[in-house]
Amino acid sequence: MPADEPSAGEKSDIIRFGNKIDDRRQLKILVADDIEDNRTLIQLYLKHLPYRLDFARDGEEVIDSWRSRGPFDLILMDMHMPKVDGYQAVSKIREVERTEHLERTMIVALTASALKEDADRSVQAGCDRHLTKPITRESLQRAISDTVTEPTRAERGVGGPRPRVYIKRELEPLMANFIENRRSELDRLDQAVQAHDLSDIIRITHSIKGVAGTFGFARISELAQLVHDSAAEADMIKVRQSHANLREHWDRVEIVYS
């Protein structure tokens, strides 16, 4: 989008709200949709909230705005736009972030399809969440809040004394192999989460939750189940949060033989 402010009588595609709110408290959001009515509706839904909005009409404008006007806290991305579609735009943004070591921009996919296959495709392209049209004020505001808000350590229930797992003495000869195998699985899970590989995430966490439960690591099994379920829902926000909880618990747990 042009960087200059429009002259009198011209319509601006760049809409900013919350001018009376301290900029340090505003979220900077880029909204990408080729249909003017959809952009206007989002503008209405987010009116009076502490968000500063930029608008783009196709994937090319998204990439240009992200490069020239960023960083953005969030991009609301229609996945079906002319010229460059949302899938291509997201993939390009993720590629640049990786090669230039840029901080990750959170992206919510907006599509008219509620099919799981389309949600999976959005996540595979690099989106963090999938929101089905027609969107409501409540669903949009909830998606924004959930996507840009990361839980604190206290909210995740971590920190404090190290968690202990009491294992029967007869299992001690098996523990070295158990620990090594789980470490290997968790390393592969790290890679799968980084790559947004939902099928690998589901497969690995299915294995972790089963074996961990068998050996008496109930909390690890529960946390792996949460990652598994989040991946099954194609919700990468929940995947990353639950994966972080699983990783942190594993790194802190102590084994006590009884």
Rank of each mutant, 00 (worst) to 15 (best):
M1W: 09
M1L: 11
A3I: 14
S7P: 00
S12F: 02
S12G: 01
I14G: 02
I21T: 02
D22W: 04
D22H: 01
D23T: 01
D23H: 04
R25V: 01
L27P: 07
A32T: 04
A32Q: 07
D33A: 03
E36S: 06
D37G: 05
L41S: 01
L44K: 06
L44I: 03
Y45C: 02
L46Y: 06
H48E: 13
L53F: 08
D54E: 03
D58M: 05
E60Y: 07
E61F: 02
D64Q: 10
S68A: 12
R69Y: 04
P71L: 08
P71H: 14
D78A: 08
P82C: 06
V84Q: 13
D85T: 04
K92T: 14
I93Q: 00
E97N: 05
E97G: 10
H101L: 13
T105C: 09
I107A: 14
V108C: 04
V108L: 03
A114W: 06
E117N: 04
D120G: 02
Q124M: 08
Q124W: 03
Q124P: 02
C127W: 06
D128A: 11
R129L: 15
K133D: 08
S139H: 08
L140T: 01
Q141Y: 11
R142W: 10
A143M: 11
T149I: 12
G157M: 11
R164L: 05
R164V: 12
M175F: 12
A176V: 10
N177P: 00
E180P: 00
L186H: 15
L189F: 05
D190G: 11
A192T: 07
Q194N: 13
A195R: 15
D197V: 04
S199Q: 15
R203A: 01
H206L: 05
I208A: 07
K209T: 06
V211T: 15
V211G: 13
F215N: 14
F215R: 14
G216M: 07
I220A: 11
I220Q: 00
E222P: 00
H228M: 08
D235H: 15
R247D: 06
W250G: 04
D251V: 03
V256I: 10
